[in-house]
Amino acid sequence: MKWIVGLGNPGPNYEKTRHNIGFMALDALAARHGIAIKQSKCKAVIGEGNISGTKIALIKPMTYMNLSGESVRAFMDYYKVSLEDLIVVYDDLDTEIGRNRLRYQGSAGGHNGIKSIIQHTGTQVFNRIRMGISRPQPGYPIVDYVLAPFPRKEAELLQQSIDEAGDAIEFALTHTFEQTMAKFNK
């Protein structure tokens, strides 16, 4: 089973915020393939299905961003899945809006959700799709920025990023992550 974890915060207050772009990407992929993400298990809501003949689980941790690793660990332990089959999708301040960056290892880079996953899995080696949200203007508090909704003027770039993340996930299901990085890192 391949498992895709989208990072975000639960609840309607956070639904359209920059920090929830990982949830948005999973929701779009689920809609594309008719998968319902609604089963409550492993401190998450989960949707299971098949894409390109591959069994997948789409996972949205309900632990809030800073504790995402608790849900990832619970899913790993319950389903006995490998980190090699994991893709984490999340927001990245250091990538501009509309662009995604793929990597298979690295530090948390200041992202508390990734920091929690590293802490609970004991490794920095797992596949990632970092979805750009750009940095705020100097002086604008980071916390306020990531918890703010995307402005209308960024709607087209946001949709492009979400669509490309879905395309990358679909490609990764039938190719190595190295091949996926070569195709989707621009």
Rank of each mutant, 00 (worst) to 15 (best):
Asn9Leu: 02
Pro10Val: 11
Pro10Phe: 04
Gly11Gln: 02
Glu15Gly: 02
Glu15Arg: 05
Lys16Val: 08
Arg18Val: 05
Asn20Asp: 05
Met24Glu: 13
Ala25Val: 07
Ala25Pro: 09
Ala25Tyr: 00
Ala25Ile: 04
Leu26Arg: 12
Asp27His: 04
Asp27Lys: 02
Asp27Phe: 00
Leu29Gly: 10
Leu29Ile: 03
Ala30Lys: 03
Ala30His: 07
Ala30Leu: 04
Ala31Leu: 07
Arg32Gln: 14
Ile37Ala: 08
Gln39Tyr: 09
Gln39Leu: 05
Cys42Ser: 11
Cys42Gly: 06
Cys42Pro: 11
Ala44Lys: 09
Val45Ile: 13
Ile46Met: 05
Ile46Gln: 11
Glu48Met: 09
Gly49Arg: 13
Gly53Arg: 03
Thr54Phe: 01
Ala57Glu: 08
Leu58Asp: 10
Ile59Pro: 11
Lys60Thr: 11
Met62Gln: 15
Thr63Leu: 09
Leu67Lys: 15
Leu67Gly: 11
Gly69Leu: 03
Glu70Arg: 14
Arg73Gly: 04
Phe75Gly: 08
Phe75Pro: 08
Tyr79Glu: 12
Val81Leu: 02
Val81Arg: 04
Ser82Ile: 12
Asp85Ser: 12
Val88Thr: 13
Val89Asp: 07
Leu93Glu: 03
Thr95Glu: 01
Asn100His: 01
Asn100Thr: 08
Arg101Leu: 02
Leu102Arg: 00
Arg103Leu: 04
Gln105Asn: 15
His111Tyr: 06
Ile114Leu: 04
Ile114Asn: 00
Ile114Cys: 01
Gln119Asp: 14
Gln119Cys: 06
Gly122His: 10
Phe126Glu: 05
Phe126Gly: 02
Ile129Thr: 06
Ile129Val: 10
Arg130Lys: 15
Met131Gly: 07
Ile133Asp: 04
Ser134Met: 01
Arg135Gln: 07
Arg135Leu: 02
Gln137Phe: 03
Pro138Ser: 10
Pro138Gln: 11
Val143His: 13
Tyr145Arg: 06
